[in-house]
């Protein structure tokens, strides 16, 4: 029998975005509603991409069911807080934090002893639980 040691931390490389996002969508906390799963994947992937973009290794995010929604926390060891940057209407960048803030019912950045955690909660509202939306 071979034992695979699994790190709680993701490497600072682009593939870590899907490494973080896909399991979150498949988790029990995602509750299976397609639009909620997509939203959860987005609010997970954006801070992970931001961490990787700044060469930080994020901790593997774990969604948690909370009353009325799902909470995702993405932590890394970069002490800098992500900030909303105003994207030029026709500019290619700076929409990630805006997307997370817009989709989330609550969102914030919490400093830790070693870095920061981005917390975002996605509400289970009718728009996010539209199980028949995707065809």
């Amino acid at each position: 029998m071979t034992t695979v040691a699994v790190s709680r931390w993701l490497p600072a490389e682009p593939a870590s975005v899907v490494r973080a996002r896909r399991p979150v969508g498949a988790s029990r906390a995602a509750r299976g509603a397609p639009a909620h799963v997509d939203g959860l994947a987005l609010i997970t992937g954006e801070p992970v991409a931001d961490a990787v973009r700044h060469a930080a290794s994020p901790r593997r995010p774990v969604p948690r069911q909370v009353p009325g929604g799902t909470l995702v926390e993405v932590c890394d060891e970069d002490p800098r807080h992500p900030v909303v940057q105003v994207a030029e209407p026709s500019g290619p960048r700076h929409r990630g934090v805006f997307v997370v803030e817009t989709l989330s019912s609550t969102q914030g950045v919490v400093p830790t002893t070693t870095g920061t955690c981005v917390r975002a909660e996605l509400a289970l509202d009718p728009r996010n639980t539209g199980g028949t939306e995707r065809t």
Binding site: V4, V6, R8, L10, A15, V18, R19, R22, P23, V24, A26, S27, R28, R60, P61, V62
Partner: peptide, 12 residues
């Protein structure tokens, strides 16, 4: 569960 899933091939 997530940790286990994270060991899979995750190429998008």
């Amino acid at each position: 569960q997530l940790t286990a899933l994270g060991t899979h091939d995750v190429r998008p």
